[in-house]
């Protein structure tokens, strides 16, 4: 429980270099993980890790953004900021999940889609858009877990899920607080002001109905007591997966359809 942290403090915890990453979650919660690589179109993008694994004995497709543990690993996986190939690989794996009737579980911890020249040449926008559309109509259960930073369309591209869960100190936003401050006030230094205004903490997002559940972290953050974190995450995923497998769901379309409808519609036609 971390009741008294400011939004900026949570951002710092969400970015902590020792915070568990997708590889940690896969080894703690899944067995028999088989990594699948490549988008079958252009290449392999290490910033997204995905494959098939057993979750409590049940085959699932697991996909997530990957941040490294050290500089070398981080350069290899572009600090968890995917290129279009990463999103297209994710889509390929989700379509396979649909074919083999496996649930999809995604782990999200990204500063956003990579803003590079080649990413643009290969259609970063199109890759994200395609994922949003295709994820919205998958017919297998989809659970998304925001474990660290969930920034921009680059995070949303893996988060069009039946259930969106969030760790207590994770943050989920339209872009990084630094980017927000520099767009709005032309001053990236005002990022802590931005953190407060952006409504990016799990509690804010639960209040806005953007996420479904907050998963509590040990005091000081997930990295300080990993075993507890993994147990909490495991409990939440299994519970939601069981509910979804029984067909208890609002329907992904309605879930996203109702966000931002609080606008006057006097002349609906």
């Amino acid at each position: 429980m971390n009741d008294r942290l400011t939004a900026a403090e949570r951002v710092a915890i969400a970015r902590h270099p020792q915070r568990p990453n997708i590889s940690d979650y896969i080894s703690a919660l899944f067995t028999d993980f088989f990594e699948q690589r490549g988008d079958r179109l252009m290449g392999e993008d290490a910033s997204i890790l995905g494959g098939v694994a057993l979750y409590h004995g049940r085959p699932v497709t697991v996909i997530g953004t990957r941040k490294g543990k050290d500089l070398e690993e981080n350069i290899h996986c572009r600090f968890g900021m995917p290129n279009p190939e990463g999103y297209r690989k994710a889509l390929r794996l989700m379509r396979q999940a649909e074919k083999f009737r496996r649930p999809v579980i995604t782990f999200i911890d990204t500063g956003g889609a990579y803003p590079g020249l080649e990413a643009e040449e290969r259609g970063q926008g199109e890759a994200i858009a395609r994922n949003l559309m295709e994820m919205s109509r998958l017919t297998v259960p989809v659970i998304a877990l925001i474990t660290g930073e969930g920034n921009s369309g680059g995070a949303l591209a893996l988060a069009v899920a039946d259930r969106v869960l969030m760790l207590e100190n994770a943050v989920y936003a339209i872009l990084s607080p630094e980017g927000f401050a520099s767009i709005l006030w032309k001053d990236a230094g005002r990022s802590s002001d931005a953190c407060e205004l952006m409504k990016l903490t799990a509690a804010d997002l639960k209040a806005l109905d953007v996420i479904d559940e907050i998963i509590l972290e040990p005091g000081g953050g997930a990295h300080l007591a990993r075993a507890i974190t993994f147990r909490q995450v495991d409990e939440a995923i299994s519970r939601h997966l069981a509910e979804l497998s029984k067909g208890k769901q609002l329907g992904r379309y309605q879930k996203f359809r109702r966000i931002g409808t609080a606008v006057p519609k006097k002349e609906g036609q």
């Binding site: 949003l132 559309m133 109509r137 952006m198 990016l200 806005l208 996203f256 359809r257």
Partner: peptide, 25 residues
């Protein structure tokens, strides 16, 4: 994005894309 609407602006990307998914079908 409309910065002043933060995450709710982001969610409109999912909403419109999902609607187009149904339109497409």
């Amino acid at each position: 994005a409309r910065m002043q609407e933060g995450i709710l602006s982001l969610m409109q990307m999912a909403k419109t894309s999902a609607a187009l998914g149904r339109f497409d079908q």
